[in-house]
Simulated assay, not measured.
Amino acid sequence: MRNPNHYFKVLILCILAVASTHAQLQLGFYTKSCPKAEQIIANFVHEHIHNAPSLAAPLIRMHFHDCFVRGCDGSVLLNSTTKQAEKDAPPNLTVRGFDFIDRVKSLVEAECPGVGGPYWKVPTGRRDGVISNLVEARSQIPAPFHNITVLQKLFQDQGLGLKDLVLLSGAHTIGISLCTSFSNRLYNFTGKGDQDPSLDSAYAKNLKTFKCKNINDNTTMVEMDPGSRKTFDLSYYNQVSKRRGLFESDAALLNNPVTKSLVIQLLQGSLENFYAEFAASIERMGQIKVKTGSEGEIRKHCAFVNS
């Protein structure tokens, strides 16, 4: 993910909550109304991404968390007002990149007020949500401690299948995590001071010795894909196959015959195939409960509903 073009695609996918006067999404929706939108974003990314090289993973995570609550409507970007918004829910407290998005959004607004641009190859024409609820975020966003049954249910609720679960989990090939997101696996898995037996014992020992030295360590960061966190590759699935997935949700992929088979298939395939499959899954996720026509609004600022 070091190529700025990769960051550009991820940023487009997250930033632009877009306007529509039609009831359907379509490819090239803004070709005429705001033809410079993508170039504005690309220029900003090329100019500034070297100062924030680790933003790719947080931006993918932000998009994921947004889509699982009321659909892909930018509701995760809203600040809390009289009611606590999604942004302040526990799963989102470690989400980063909001300022980066706000800065690009302001440039696009200056060029074309109320207009955004395309997400990967996803048809555009979606609008921003006006409701953002902390409680919904807590209950609907898949968590690192969820088992395969819960994960499958949460994905099904969004119209996604087991293949999407495996592919989107592949985003863990980049980025980092706080120890507290998985330290129970090391120190108190069943509440009896034990270790998760599904976690490779040598990997667990390494984590306890050199990284998360106690269960309450809430400052140390750990690579989700050791030695490969800055490269979007197949290494994550290799770690999972060796029982070295960092989260319970990673280990869960081996607890279902379908997901386990998909992990093996990805490892046996090419990197190009993984890229294509991952992109297709991101596109499916990007169409969850999209708002078009007169639904929602076109926010002037990402963090605030229009007054």
Results as ranks from 00 to 15, higher is better:
G159M: 10
F182W: 15
A143G: 03
Q140L: 05
D128W: 14
V166T: 09
L151W: 12
Q152W: 04
N133T: 01
K163I: 04
H172C: 06
S181T: 11
R127L: 14
N133P: 00
F145G: 04
Q152S: 11
V166Y: 13
I131Q: 10
S181E: 15
D157V: 03
D164G: 07
C179T: 02
T149L: 11
N147T: 04
V150F: 07
A171N: 04
T180F: 15
S132N: 05
P142K: 11
S132M: 02
V150L: 15
F155L: 08
F155T: 01
T149Y: 12
S132T: 00
I148D: 00
L168E: 05
F145Q: 10
L151F: 12
S177G: 06
I148R: 05
D128R: 05
T173L: 08
K153P: 03
L168P: 02
L134N: 08
F182T: 09
R126N: 11
Q158M: 15
I148S: 01
G129T: 03
D164S: 10
V166H: 13
C179D: 07
N133S: 05
F145N: 10
N133A: 02
C179K: 08
C179M: 11
Q140H: 09
V150T: 11
L134M: 10
L178E: 09
Q152R: 14
